[in-house]
Each structure stands twice: as structure tokens, then as C-alpha cells.
Write a protein that binds this DNA or RNA. Structure first.
Length: 327
DNA sequence: ACTCTATGCCTACTTACGTCA
DNA sequence: GGTGACGTAAGTAGGCATAGA
């Protein structure tokens, strides 16, 4: 799904992705067995430039990122869906991932959608919708605070979160949760199966891990980001190698050109008729190539019906193919 | 049919905390 | 014990799709 969104978002990296798309098919299996160290830092927040075998494992689920997507009807608030779920309508959004109604808790409350609480929150939503969403998430469990002021709701949030797992939600000191190995392993396993979660899966996983659904959601978001970052690093490394190969090839061709020019200058103006050049077929571009000089290769070719002179696009050296196959 | 609004999910980016050398 | 680098959980902003009024 993430890749689906890449195609529609005003993504800062869209240009890079378009370029990298060329490389993806051939680079997907490249980093698996060795450590690749790249000097190319991926700004602005790439802190590591080393791709290891573990990273390759990290990348594997990314192959399926584009294969799934989802969307559901409104009021599918992840953390508080049990309060607001109304209905489920499969859509083509988010890349055609279709949820069945069983994906969601069925305790939807239609009236909740238009509750005073909802309205109060909505009126605050223009500036910072994400923040409002979180506010609504945490305060939805306490309808008594629905009419509270913003400050009161913040206070409610703090008290809510303190109740929720004992994490202090002080704005000044946010404590960082460290997931246990068991939790991380389970999340990893789940991510391998599907890189995005539907609400039901999220709820189940959260319950199983004794975490809040929001924490599971965040973990998956960060996990997708890490996967994408690693993939970008791998792709950059691949393109870097391609660039080097092209540079070498260009250098070689330049040298060859110089040699040919020098040879031409040293040749006498009149060339006596030479035996017909040997014809051969370039295995790469299927074009007739005259080995040797003097005779009119084109005439010979014209008399050789087995050799096609169809104007095929001439073979270009491609770094994406085996360089040794270039003619 | 069209517009507007609310909502949810996403990515990209950032912040801040925990860990480790 | 102090410190900087690194990994990562969590926050924030903005975009898109959708449903319903």
C-alpha cells in the first residue's frame, strides 16, 4: 500500500522513485549475502549507510508493499473504532485492499458520529487535524469530557494515558517505550505476513502484545519507513555502480574513437579494392557487422537475404544488463 | 450532480529517549 | 561516569480517498 500512496502523493522523492524503478527489478536480490557499504547518505535522516544481510531480510517484505491496500468507511478510527464504527465498504482506495466486515469490531454506534463530542472536536480540526485525531482518540473513552475546553481535553489525555499502561504522558517528559524481544519478534512476524494492518488485525495484535493499537500502528509505520529507507540505500548503491560502469564504458569508447580517428588520418586517400569484408551478426543487436574494411558491406548485405537490415533500434550499452553482452 | 466537511490512513519528516561502544 | 552515535518509539504536518450531509 505504501507504494500505492507513493504514486499519488506529492512525494518529495517521487523523482528518485521514478529513476529507481528502473533498477528495482534487477536490484531486488542484490544485497542479500554481503555487506554493502555506501558513501551515499540518504538525507535527511539516514543514520546508517551500511546494508547488511539483516537489512536484506528487512527488505523482503517490501516486495509485497505494493500488493496490498485498504480502505474502509469513515469512522474507522484505529484506537477507538469500537466507539465509532458504523459500516465497512470496500473501496479501491489504498490499492484495492478489501476488508470484510469481519475485519472490524461490530459494535458500531451510528449516533456517535454526530455526537456533541464529535462536533466539538471537529470545530477544532482545521489547524491540526492529526492532533485532533489523537485528542479524540484518547478522550473518546470519557464522554463526560466531550464538551471540555482544549486544555481540559489535554488534561484528560494525560490522565487517560496514565491509566493506560502506566505511561506518564507529561508533555515535558515523554517516556519512551522499549518493546520486548518477544513483542518485536511477533510484530516482525506479522509484518512479514502483511506490511499493513487492517483494524481488526491491529486490535488483535495489540491485544496479543498487550499494547495499545496506536502503538502497533506506529510500529508498522516506522517499520515501513525503515524498509523503504533500506531499499532506497540499496537502490542508490546499485545506481552508483551503474554510473561507474557507464563512466568506464564511455571512457573506453572515447579512447576507441580517438584511435579510429588517428587511424583514419594515417590511411592513404586511395584505398584499393579489398576483399569482401567478413560479415558477422552481432549477438546483441542482431545487426550485420562488417569485420574488416574496404568492400561495401552494405552491398554485400543487400545480397544476403538472410541478414535483416530492418531498422532496429541499435543496441545501446545498458548498465542494467550484463555489460559483457554489449557489442 | 456537485460541493463541502469530517474522517481515516498514509508518508515524510522530526523529536526525544534508550542503549551501547 | 560522561559522551556521542545510533536505533527507534512517538509526534507532527500535509495529502489523498471516501462517505455523508
Amino acid at each position: 500500500m505504501g507504494l500505492h500512496h507513493d504514486s499519488t502523493h506529492n512525494n518529495n522523492n517521487i523523482g528518485l522513485h521514478l529513476v529507481l524503478g528502473l533498477a528495482l527489478s534487477s536490484s531486488s536480490d542484490s544485497p542479500t549475502q554481503e555487506t554493502i557499504t555506501t558513501s551515499t547518505k540518504i538525507p535527511p535522516y539516514s543514520s546508517s549507510s551500511t546494508v547488511t544481510t539483516d537489512d536484506a531480510e528487512l527488505l523482503l517484505p517490501s516486495l509485497t508493499l505494493a500488493l496490498s491496500g485498504h480502505d474502509v468507511n469513515k469512522n474507522k478510527n484505529d484506537d477507538t473504532q469500537e466507539h465509532h464504527r458504523v459500516q465497512v465498504v470496500p473501496t479501491k482506495a489504498n490499492n484495492n485492499k478489501v476488508y470484510s466486515s469481519e475485519d472490524y469490531p461490530s459494535t458500531g454506534d451510528v449516533s456517535a458520529q454526530n455526537s456533541p463530542h464529535h462536533s466539538a472536536v471537529s470545530s477544532f480540526s482545521s489547524g491540526c487535524r492529526r492532533g485532533v485525531k489523537r485528542e479524540r482518540d484518547v478522550s473518546a473513552s470519557d464522554e463526560a469530557e466531550a464538551e471540555a475546553t482544549e486544555i481540559e481535553r489535554l488534561s484528560s489525555r494525560i490522565s487517560d494515558e496514565e491509566e493506560d499502561g502506566g505511561t506518564t504522558a507529561s508533555a515535558a517528559a515523554r517516556k519512551k517505550l522499549r518493546l520486548t524481544k518477544e513483542q518485536s519478534a511477533l510484530l516482525e512476524d506479522s509484518f512479514k505476513q502483511h506490511s499493513t494492518l487492517n483494524p481488526k488485525q491491529k486490535q488483535a495484535l495489540a491485544k496479543q502484545l498487550n499494547l495499545r493499537p496506536r502503538q502497533v500502528e506506529v510500529w508498522f509505520q516506522n517499520r515501513r519507513a525503515r524498509t523503504k529507507l533500506k531499499q532506497t540505500e540499496v537502490d542508490c548503491e546499485f545506481l552508483k555502480k551503474c554510473c561507474e560502469t557507464l563512466t568506464d564504458e564511455n571512457r573506453r569508447l572515447q579512447k576507441e574513437l580517438q584511435e579510429l580517428k588517428a587511424l583514419k588520418l594515417s590511411q592513404p586517400l586511395y584505398m584499393p579494392p579489398m576483399p569482401a569484408a567478413t560479415l558477422t551478426i552481432c549477438p546483441s543487436c542482431d545487426r550485420a557487422v562488417a569485420i574488416g574494411s574496404g568492400g561495401s558491406a552494405s552491398n554485400n548485405i543487400k545480397n544476403t537475404p538472410l541478414i535483416s537490415l530492418a531498422p532496429k533500434p541499435h543496441h545501446f550499452f545498458s548498465p542494467f544488463t550484463n555489460p559483457s553482452a554489449a557489442c
